[in-house]
Design a protein around this nucleic acid. Structure first.
Length: 152
DNA sequence: GCCAACGTTGGC
DNA sequence: GCCAACGTTGGC
């Protein structure tokens, strides 16, 4: 089992939205590294930290689970979508997505500031300089510590 | 809204 | 394959 962190802007789609709809396809990822994680490494049942970016405060807002493994992201074939990509064909899809399922909303956001100030979490990709990747792997150690902090 | 730090594109 | 120009991300 693997652990992950996925970013989203709560103004667009946040933990409360996920709680309401229960399940959501994680479409619109247009970065090759992030795509590869979804396509090649994410397995059903993997647990995912839901990170709110561009918000106050920015930080980890809750927990979700991979409910469906990777399949082509259909929004790249939709000319009206802002994620439309003419170079992606049905025969050779370029972009993939997974589906996530709501698990839990933390009582309080575990803020980026707290994460930065927590030594045990200093290895997280999210606090490393220059990492803007919207999907990053998380170690079990980091994951357990995040849950512990969020529950306390 | 600013801007640093990236990633992507495309001409050569 | 290089790299300038451009676009995006995301904290502040």
């Amino acid at each position: 089992m693997n652990y992950w962190l996925m970013k989203s802007e709560p103004d667009v789609f946040g933990i409360d939205d996920l709680k309401r709809v229960k399940k959501e396809p994680w479409d619109g990822v247009r970065n090759y590294q992030a795509r590869n994680f979804m396509r090649d490494e994410m397995k059903k049942g993997d647990l995912v930290l839901f990170y709110h970016s561009n918000s106050k405060p920015a930080g980890i807002a809750g927990l979700m689970e991979i409910s469906k493994e990777s399949h082509p992201d259909h929004t790249c074939w939709d000319k009206k979508s802002k994620y439309y990509d003419p170079k992606s064909t049905k025969e050779n899809p370029r972009w993939f997505m997974v589906e996530v399922k709501y698990k839990k909303k933390f009582k309080e956001i575990l803020s980026l500031e707290t994460i930065k100030n927590t030594k045990a979490l200093s290895t997280m990709k999210i606090v490393q300089k220059g990492n803007r990747l919207s999907i990053t792997p998380v170690t079990k150690k980091e994951f357990d510590y995040v849950l512990k902090l969020a529950e306390s």
